[in-house]
Simulated assay, not measured.
Amino acid sequence: MEQTNEAAAARQVEITARGGQADIEIDGTRIDPSTVKAYSVSHLAGEQPDVLLHVTDRGDTQWSGMARVAVADVPDPGPAAAIFLEAIDPEGLERAVLARPDIGSEPYSLTQTMLTQLGEWARGL
């Protein structure tokens, strides 16, 4: 059976946690505890487990090795916002805003209250 690139890149990681302290070894090599400020472990059935080390910037410690890196694009909120706003009943919005106790009398307070109401509706409040 052939190894996949992912399986070939897998490392043996051992974490021994006691209270607020943890000893971490990668392929039998102990990692200096001052170089890791946090870690997390996740594993989905049928996939390789992932260990995420959050490293500190202390000292001259050099990190080397292979890693899987994922870069996420922040979704454009425009299309979702447009769909949300198209579904708003103008009469219902006006009624809801004028009935709010926090509507002010300062300039732009009606607009501010409408934006507050729309934000609450968007969050499901």
Rank of each mutant, 00 (worst) to 15 (best):
A10S: 10
A8W: 06
F84S: 11
V36A: 07
Y39V: 08
G65H: 01
R100H: 03
S105I: 08
E106Y: 08
E86F: 00
A17L: 00
R18M: 08
E2F: 11
P49M: 04
V55A: 09
P90C: 03
S109C: 09
H43D: 14
M1G: 14
H54E: 15
G65V: 03
L44M: 08
A122L: 12
Q12V: 13
F84C: 13
S40G: 15
M114R: 04
D76S: 14
A96D: 15
E47S: 12
A87H: 06
I24C: 06
E91T: 10
R18F: 04
T16F: 05
T35Y: 03
P77N: 06
R58P: 09
L125V: 13
T29I: 14
G104L: 01
W63Y: 10
T116E: 05
M1A: 12
T111H: 04
A9V: 01
D50N: 14
T56D: 08
G119V: 04
L98E: 12
V36T: 12
P77H: 07
S42W: 00
I15S: 10
S109D: 15
Q12L: 14
E94Q: 08
I31N: 05
L93A: 08
V13A: 10
R123E: 12
G78P: 10
I24E: 07
A99P: 12
S34Q: 10
A99F: 04
A72S: 06
I26A: 12
D89R: 01
Q112W: 01
I31M: 04
T56N: 10
L93Q: 09
L52Q: 08
P107W: 00
V71A: 09
S105T: 14
A38V: 06
S105N: 14
L85Q: 11
Y39I: 09
L52P: 00
Q117F: 05
Q48P: 10
V74N: 07
T113F: 00
R11F: 04
D102V: 02
E120F: 05
A22F: 08
P33D: 08
A122Q: 10
A99E: 15
G119I: 02
V97P: 05
P49D: 11
V97K: 04
L85W: 04
Y39L: 09
S109R: 03
S40R: 10
A67L: 15
N5P: 12
M1W: 01
Q3N: 13
G119Y: 01
A99Y: 05
G104F: 01
Q112M: 09
A70G: 13
A7W: 00
P107S: 09
Q112C: 01
I83M: 11
I26V: 14
Q112L: 07
I26M: 12
A45L: 10
V36W: 03
I26Y: 10
P107M: 04
R11S: 14
G78W: 03
T113I: 02
I15N: 08
A8P: 05
Y108C: 07
Y108K: 07
E106W: 05
A99Q: 14
R95N: 09
L52D: 06
P107V: 01
L52S: 11
